[in-house]
Amino acid sequence: MSLTKSNKKFKWALDFNPKSRTSASDLPSPPGYSQSTNANYTESSKETDSNLLLIKKLWDVALGPLKQVPMNLFIMYMAGNSISIFPIMMVGMLIVRPIKALFSTQSTFKMVEGTQAAGQKFVYFIGNVVNILLALYKCQSMGLLPTHSSDWLAFEEPLTRVEHIGGGISMI
């Protein structure tokens, strides 16, 4: 008890001269080892449980696409509007990644059967949709979307005529 006392007093002080030789089993705990605190700590972590951690982790995953938005905006800004191989590759990545992610939503959230699963899935879905919209906006500003009538000009049927004419300078 005295030891604990002195321990309490001087936490890091080591007494090399014990007053009484006690048995080996009575050895003091290693320095820095506090049984009480350790027990306390494990007690508390066991209480919060893995469930909470999982939810937190899954929220991280669910919010991932939304967190990417600023980064994507920056990439889009840096890519510019010119049509060349790198911007096209970047835009391609931007549009392909969220679509892939959307298709793999089920597998991403496979292990979850929690109360918040629906919300997470929804947020994840929203985030990816936002990313797709961003990519489409980029495509549009690059002029890659066939939204104008000029883009469909080549598919028009050739002109047909109602009247047929002939003639020329008088042959007389």
Binding site: H148, S150, D151, L153, E156, P158, L159, G167
Partner: peptide, 21 residues
Amino acid sequence: SASRAAQRTHSPGRALSDRSV
């Protein structure tokens, strides 16, 4: 006098740089 050559017209318009026709 030159009447229009009887040939098919490929495109009904020309696309401009602002993507209108």
